[in-house]
Amino acid sequence: MLYEDKQYISDKYIEHETHCIFDYGAKGLKRLSKKKATPLQIQKQNHWNKVKNCRRTIQLNFSEGDLWCTFAYRKGTRKDMREFTRDIRRFTNLLRVEYQKQGKDLKWIRRLEIGKRGGLHAHFILNKADTKLISDTWRKAVKDSGRAHFEVIDDEDGYNGLAEYICKEPTEEIQGQMTFLVPEDKKKLCSISTSRNLVRPEAVRKQISAWKIARILTGKEEIIPTEGYSIEQDTVRIGFNKFTHLPYIRYREKIITDSCDCRPQKCEQIARTQIICPETQIKNQISKAGTEIIKKAKGILGSIKDIWRR
């Protein structure tokens, strides 16, 4: 039985998703009765996939120092979705021209929203530029333009918080404001748009033996970080799929920079002993699999031995 490690590589991060590449369930366990996924389960799964894809897209195309921008209309201004999208399109086109004048390519990720009081506004992630230039372009493009708010983004959590905010589901108050909109306009306020020149996340696939997975699950072997990277402990997820009973491993690695507070000789010792960088290990260590997980892992290991003997 082979396992596949899908790696999503960006400048600072490597995200790992390890799972069995076959579709059948674990040997020796009874087949569960088929159950149709509930709408809530489908919604949660789609939202989780949406956040993952957005986070990885941000990691590939943006970095610290780029901008998180909010553009709104003047207080008291109310426009329909047709006028709103037309204003945003005009602003984006003018801003692209201004970037080109400075020898840059405009990159953006956008989310349109409606506020608790019905005010339409837009959130953008933009590659670095002069904030005065951007706000002047907003006022030039939109007649009833209001404030333009800017924040510098950081990658403290691998842009996960930023991705979750962009992909967030409307609250009950926001859904109340959306009741007056047609379904097509509601969809626009729940979707994400991006510029066409963004690099899209693609997985690098590597095969891993079942023996290695079994040793990690039983605690006999630790996950070894890629050379020059450290494993972020709070991203490690080890468990079993509740439908197939097959194990999975998910975690994220971050590149070790000069700002690492560990001494060079200690980093060399870490590489020799295959221990994770103390920058994160001091805070947390990979938790041992629970009693139930170990029991299941031993069962899988036994089935692997049976297959090997045959």
Rank of each mutant, 00 (worst) to 15 (best):
D130R: 07
S10I: 04
G299Y: 01
E156T: 11
L60D: 06
Y24G: 11
I307E: 14
F84W: 05
K35I: 13
T226K: 14
V204M: 10
D11Y: 03
K116M: 02
T85K: 12
H123E: 04
K254R: 15
R139G: 13
H121K: 08
T131S: 10
I256H: 00
L198N: 02
K143G: 11
E279I: 04
K305G: 02
I58V: 12
F124S: 02
P201A: 04
R55Q: 15
H245R: 06
K206G: 05
I109D: 00
F180D: 14
A129Q: 15
R200Q: 15
K35D: 11
I294K: 09
S191R: 14
A26K: 09
K107N: 05
Y251A: 10
C190Y: 08
N53I: 02
R272I: 11
C69M: 14
T291Q: 05
G119D: 12
D306E: 00
Q207M: 07
D185N: 14
I58Y: 05
T235S: 15
A129D: 14
I270K: 10
R215P: 00
A141Q: 06
T38M: 13
T257E: 11
L162P: 00
N49L: 11
L189G: 05
E221W: 04
Y99L: 02
K34M: 03
G103Y: 02
N53E: 09
F240K: 06
I276L: 09
M81W: 00
D105F: 06
N49I: 03
H149I: 09
Q102H: 10
V152Y: 07
H16E: 11
C69N: 09
R31H: 13
I256P: 01
I238Q: 04
W308V: 05
V152H: 05
Y3K: 00
P183H: 12
R86H: 10
L162A: 01
F243K: 15
A129Y: 12
R205K: 15
Y251P: 10
D157E: 09
T235C: 12
L106P: 00
R90H: 10
N93K: 10
Q207K: 08
I134M: 05
F180N: 14
R272T: 11
I238V: 13
I286N: 04
R56D: 13
I153H: 04
S10W: 06
R117K: 12
E164G: 02
H121D: 08
D66P: 08
E184P: 01
T137Y: 09
